[in-house]
Each structure stands twice: as C-alpha cells, then as structure tokens.
Lab assay of single mutants.
Amino acid sequence: RRRVRAILPYTKVPDTDEISFLKGDMFIVHNELEDGWMWVTNLRTDEQGLIVEDLVEEVG
C-alpha cells in the first residue's frame, strides 16, 4: 500500500470528512480521488478521512 508523510500540519474544516494532522504524521492511502484529495488512515491517530495531496510527500 502507498504511504505518504505530512510535510505541513493541517486543521480540518468543521463538518467535513477531512482529518486534522501534524507535520510528520504517516498515512496509508486507500483511495485517490479527484482534485488531489486522498482517503487515508492516519497511522498515529488511527483516524480515517480526507487529506489533500499537496500537504504530503511520498515515502520510499
């Protein structure tokens, strides 16, 4: 499975499927959606939700 790491922190918009995260958080990518969004699991918090790919980098 594809893994990505947050390069910046992010605070979710209330009442959306987004998740908040810290710089350095690792995610497993489940689905890549339109307009650069990804459905992921945050490995630190075990939370699932949407993040935008501009805020993460690939992990080898």
Rank of each mutant, 00 (worst) to 15 (best):
V4C: 09
T16I: 02
E53R: 15
T16H: 03
A6E: 01
A6T: 02
G60L: 13
P9R: 06
E34G: 13
I7N: 06
T41K: 07
E34K: 14
G36N: 08
D35E: 10
D54E: 12
V52N: 13
T41L: 08
I51D: 00
V59P: 06
F27P: 00
D15A: 09
L22C: 14
E18F: 06
T41C: 13
F21E: 00
W39M: 07
S20E: 04
E34A: 15
V13T: 14
V4S: 02
L55F: 14
N42I: 03
H30C: 15
V4H: 02
V56E: 00
L33V: 12
E32N: 14
D35I: 06
T11N: 12
W37C: 10
I51E: 00
I7W: 06
R1A: 15
I19Q: 02
S20T: 08
L8Q: 13
I51F: 00
W37H: 08
D46A: 15
V40H: 00
V52W: 14
V52Y: 14
E34Q: 14
P14M: 09
V59M: 10
F27Q: 00
E58L: 07
V52H: 12
A6Y: 01
L55K: 12
K23I: 10
L55Q: 11
H30N: 07
V29M: 03
R3M: 14
K12F: 03
D54L: 11
E18L: 06
G24L: 03
E32C: 15
M26S: 07
V59S: 07
D35C: 15
E47K: 07
G36M: 04
F21L: 03
I7H: 06
R44M: 08
T41A: 05
T41S: 07
Q48S: 11
W39D: 04
D17G: 10
N42H: 07
N31F: 14
L43C: 15
V56N: 01
E47Q: 11
D15M: 12
V4T: 04
T45Q: 02
D35F: 12
P9L: 05
D46S: 15
L22Y: 08
R2L: 07
K23P: 09
V52D: 12
T45M: 03
S20P: 03
V40P: 00
I28A: 08
E53C: 15
L8F: 14
G60N: 12
R5F: 05
E32S: 12
N31S: 13
R44K: 04
L55S: 08
N31G: 09
A6Q: 01
D46C: 15
I19N: 01
I7E: 04
R3P: 05
P9E: 12
D25K: 00
T41I: 08
Q48V: 09
V52R: 10
E57H: 06
I28S: 08
S20F: 02
E53P: 12
E34L: 14
L8N: 11
T16V: 03
D25I: 02
D17C: 15
E18D: 03
L55V: 07
H30K: 05
L43A: 06
M38P: 00
R1E: 15
A6L: 01
R5N: 03
R1D: 15
I51S: 01
W37Q: 08
E57P: 01
L55R: 08
F27H: 02
Y10S: 05
P14K: 09
D17L: 13
T41D: 03
D35M: 11
P9F: 06
E18I: 06
R1I: 15
D35P: 07
K23G: 08
I19F: 02
W37M: 10
Q48M: 09
E58N: 12
G24D: 09
D17R: 12
V56Q: 02
V59A: 13
W39G: 02
R2K: 11
L50G: 04
V40R: 00
N42E: 01
R44T: 07
E32H: 11
E57F: 05
E58W: 05
L50N: 04
P14L: 07
E34R: 14
L8D: 09
N42P: 01
V29E: 01
F21T: 02
E47H: 06
S20G: 06
M26W: 09
T11Y: 08
T41Y: 09
D35Q: 14
I28W: 10
I51C: 05
E47L: 07
D54Y: 15
T45L: 03
K23T: 12
V13H: 12
R3G: 05
F27T: 00
T45N: 11
F21R: 00
L55D: 06
A6F: 01
D15H: 12
I19T: 02
D15V: 05
Q48G: 05
R5M: 08
Q48A: 08
L43P: 03
T45C: 02
E47S: 05
F27N: 00
D35V: 06
D46P: 01
R2P: 08
T45K: 03
A6P: 00
D46Y: 15
I51H: 00
R2S: 08
D17M: 12
G60P: 10
H30P: 00
V56W: 03
M26Q: 09
L22Q: 13
F21K: 00
R2C: 10
V59I: 12
K23N: 07
F21W: 03
D54F: 14
V59W: 11
I51A: 05
L22I: 14
K12I: 03
G60A: 13
D25W: 03
I7G: 03
T11I: 13
T11L: 10
G60H: 13
I7Y: 06
D15E: 09
I19K: 00
N31T: 14
K12C: 13
I51R: 00
D54S: 12
Q48E: 07
F21H: 02
Q48W: 08
V59C: 15
E53D: 13
V4L: 08
V56H: 02
L50F: 09
G36P: 05
E53T: 14
A6N: 00
P14E: 13
L55C: 13
E57Y: 07
L33A: 12
W37R: 13
W39I: 06
E53A: 14
K12R: 10
V29Y: 02
T16M: 03
T45H: 02
T45P: 02
L50P: 04
M38V: 06
E34C: 15
V59R: 05
G36K: 08
V29R: 01
S20Y: 02
D35Y: 13
T11F: 09
P14A: 10
L22A: 10
G36R: 07
K12S: 11
D17Q: 11
L33M: 13
K23H: 07
M26F: 11
D25L: 01
E18Q: 12
F27V: 01
T45G: 03
I28V: 12
E58M: 06
T11R: 07
R2N: 07
P14F: 08
V4F: 07
V4G: 02
T16D: 02
W37V: 07
D54R: 11
R44W: 03
E47M: 07
D25Y: 02
F21I: 04
G60M: 14
L22S: 08
Y10G: 04
V56L: 05
D54N: 12
K12N: 05
L8C: 15
D17K: 12
R1C: 15
E58S: 09
T45I: 02
V13G: 10
G60F: 14
E34F: 14
L55W: 12
D15P: 04
G60T: 13
R2E: 06
V4E: 01
E18K: 03
G60K: 14
M26N: 10
Q48Y: 08
Y10V: 03
W39T: 04
G49V: 01
I51W: 00
W39L: 10
E58C: 10
V4K: 04
E58I: 08
I51K: 00
D17T: 11
A6K: 00
A6V: 01
R5L: 07
K23C: 13
E47G: 04
V13P: 06
G49Y: 01
I19V: 08
L43T: 14
V13E: 13
P14Q: 10
L43R: 04
E47C: 13
R3D: 04
V52Q: 11
G60I: 14
W39V: 07
Y10F: 05
H30R: 05
R5S: 06
G36Y: 04
T41G: 03
K12H: 08
V52S: 13
V13K: 12
V59T: 08
V4Q: 02
M38W: 06
V56G: 01
R5H: 05
D46R: 15
F27D: 00
D15W: 09
T41P: 01
K23L: 10
W39A: 04
H30Y: 11
R2M: 07
E57R: 08
D17P: 10
L22W: 08
S20W: 02
R1G: 15
E57N: 06
